[in-house]
Design a protein around this nucleic acid. Structure first.
Lengths: 270, 270
DNA sequence: CCATGTGAAGGCCTTCACAGCC
DNA sequence: GGCTGTGAAGGCCTTCACATGG
């Protein structure tokens, strides 16, 4: 046993210099990596709108983070902002794509074509963002052989061969709970080192495999807790003292800071 | 600012819990709440297997966390384990259900019956866990009127009336990005205070509304980063595959080891 | 001037280690 | 003896505040 406690980022080794490499840039905090992807998307929208530059305040407001945090995040990737101006949209966009490893398309395999799996297979947003779903697997004879978005569903027993053949680098597990570990094992044996797990179980994986978990029931239960908490708080009748955050005088509301020109963006389904 | 740029990931103000009640001496950390739901599920499985008690080591291993963390988590909810033995499965299960506010079923509304929305609507796991999907909405005339799992899809213009009528307390937004804010606004006007957002945008909400975000593209991009990192590490520093663009000789490292991001990448507000 | 970049401070969370109890 | 419960220590991360520089 002793698999790393996976919960998002697993982790055992912090230092990324295994052998003798002497160069230590600044490691990028995990929390920062997650936000970089969000900045990236917003930068894409800004670029489509023709924006040349953005300030940290603008980009931070649009992505829902503190502007100091955004600047610090960008500093981790060696940002090149222009003082007094902001960041150049397109260069920054390219730079983040590089940092996140989005220079090459990553073939994705999906195991489990049930309710959720079917939706994931049909979701166009992945391919458009450089993550083409390249292989589909299930064990149900009624599913094996059908096509979804032009991809044939194959039997899960062929995971290893097919994934190797197509160069799959990322696996998604959307099977029922009891089947998830088996699917995961096959993906790992196929050489997949990053897995997105939708099944409600904790996957056991070798140390070098990264697992992230998306658990919809847990999300709802967390919200339920807050519903209950609100209910209790409401009985307390505390009248929310307005003391606005100590923001330096930018109390203008949403419109001015959030350009709201989301339209014109590629329509995707989620 | 009255509609604050959404706070950082999962940890702005950790204080969560009843203010005046004498029962819980300490507020429950947000991170703990998220894990309680995971413990709860595992306890359910253990109960089905007929287990009477579990030790913190066992439960921790099964849910992928450190056992000390688990004990501390349970201490926040005032647990009463038995020293030398462990925790009684069923009483603990009931206690966690109580704490998470799962004593009443929470009616859920889902806006956006596209690819993912359709899957969510048909996903049986919610109802079974106390979150019956009670209302479905879309604007597409081809969808309005059809039934999914016995629920009729209604037009999004009726969100306010229908949600109020059916006592919806939790909303899920699975629309395309540009439509998400509008859907969110209607839910809020209907009195919904907790929203699970699958759309790739940052929702602007009043302060008392809680939003959690599930962003599948971001999840994949985070994994892509780890693929790239592994690739670099595997090359042992000798050469970096011709990715020209970046500034300093940064080779991507990663800092954190402890699972902050639990399931999915999640944004909390309030 | 204005916005970036960053040391420093503070907060939340995790982990350790052991006292306490069954 | 075994396991829970918890103070204390340490780590990451966020936030502040201001020096820096176009």
């Amino acid at each position: 046993m002793t698999s790393p406690p996976q919960a998002g980022p697993s982790g055992a080794a912090g230092a990324v210099g295994p052998a003798g490499a002497a160069k230590l840039p600044r490691p990028i905090p995990e929390a920062t990596v997650a936000r970089l992807a969000v900045y990236l998307r917003m930068l894409g929208e800004l670029a489509e709108q023709g924006a040349e530059t953005v300030s940290s305040d603008e980009l931070a407001a649009a992505t829902g983070v503190n502007s100091a945090k955004l600047r610090k995040d960008l500093s981790y990737v060696g940002s090149h902002g222009i003082r007094g101006v902001g960041y150049e949209v397109r260069p920054l966009l390219k730079h983040l794509e590089n940092t996140l490893g989005l220079t090459h398309r990553q073939a994705v395999a999906l195991v489990g074509i049930g309710n959720l799996g079917h939706a994931l297979a049909g979701y166009g947003g992945f391919g458009g963002r450089g993550f083409p779903v390249t292989a589909l697997f299930d064990v149900d004879p009624d599913l094996v052989g059908i096509k979804i978005n032009g991809i044939v569903v194959e039997h899960a027993r062929d995971i290893i061969a097919v994934c190797r053949d197509r160069g799959v680098t990322i696996g998604m597990v959307a099977t029922p709970g009891p089947a998830a570990q088996g699917a995961c094992d096959l993906l790992v044996r196929a050489g997949v080192t990053c897995i997105l797990n939708f099944a409600p179980v904790v996957l056991q994986v070798p140390e070098q495999v990264e697992v992230r978990k998306v658990d919809l029931s847990v999300e709802l239960q967390i919200l339920a807790f807050h519903v209950a908490r609100r209910h209790v708080a409401a009985l307390d009748g505390s009248g929310r003292g307005g003391s606005a955050l100590d923001g330096p005088g930018l109390d203008v509301g949403i419109a001015s800071r959030n350009g709201y020109a989301l339209h014109g963006h590629v329509v995707r389904e989620t």
